[in-house]
Amino acid sequence: MHLDHTFESYTVSNKLVKIRAGKKIFLSIFTLFIAVYTLSHFILLLILFTMSSLTIWSGVRIKDYLKLLMIPLTFLLPSISVLAFLHGSEPMLTFSILEMHLSMMREGLELCTLLMMRSMAGISCLFFLIMTTPISEILDTMRKFRIPEIVIELSFLVYKLIFVLIDELESTKIAQDARLGYLRGNRIRSLSLLISSMLVRSFEKAENMERALEARCYAGKMPSLKFGRENESENKVHVFSLSLILMILFDACLLVLAVEGGD
């Protein structure tokens, strides 16, 4: 099972594929800015809900969506929850573990919630983009905006390699599970073996991929989807502009809400 291809296949077969990449980038980036700017829980939830349901509606299976969501969450949850104990001065709950007193602060908890919601809203914006827009189209748009070639090429390679890592993680874990590596007592050893073997294999894969790309004279250009069609038809023009109007309206509403009630 290649996660990389699973996700990429969504980008070419979802219901929003006909809408130009520029618009989707605009929607997701602009909404992302609003999410960063606003302090209102309501707007953040609204963004999270709209963007994730839009993504899922466009054809992504919920299971796959959640799977991808787990990746940032595993990093976010521990790092953000630490804040609840560090920030603020009004203790709500106090634990004592081995002579140490840990207290959860009210302010900290509030900050935590806000950060968590903001991150989730932001992630939902970016997920919308990467799951509805083929990477080649995103790169083309970046090129149109005169983003340096090196950044574009790096983005593509990072995009590819993230999935290489995840794939390797999964297959190594399956191999270890099959050999009962996660029974009690073997945990730490298995985990460190898992990580090291995953890294080694990812390096190998990355090297193979790089060679294969080089062998085909890859110079940073991904063929766009237009090569597939004999004669490109833009017969859905009215849908395009309608979608743009909708997107602008959506963001405008959010912006007004954020400015009005944002304190």
Binding site: E8, T11, A212, R216, C217, P223, L225, F227, G228
Partner: peptide, 16 residues
């Protein structure tokens, strides 16, 4: 590397 067959086949020629 590309998600669709023709896109991948076009990779070499496009980069040339």
């Amino acid at each position: 590397v590309a998600p669709i067959v023709f896109q991948d086949v076009a990779l070499g020629p496009v980069n040339l």
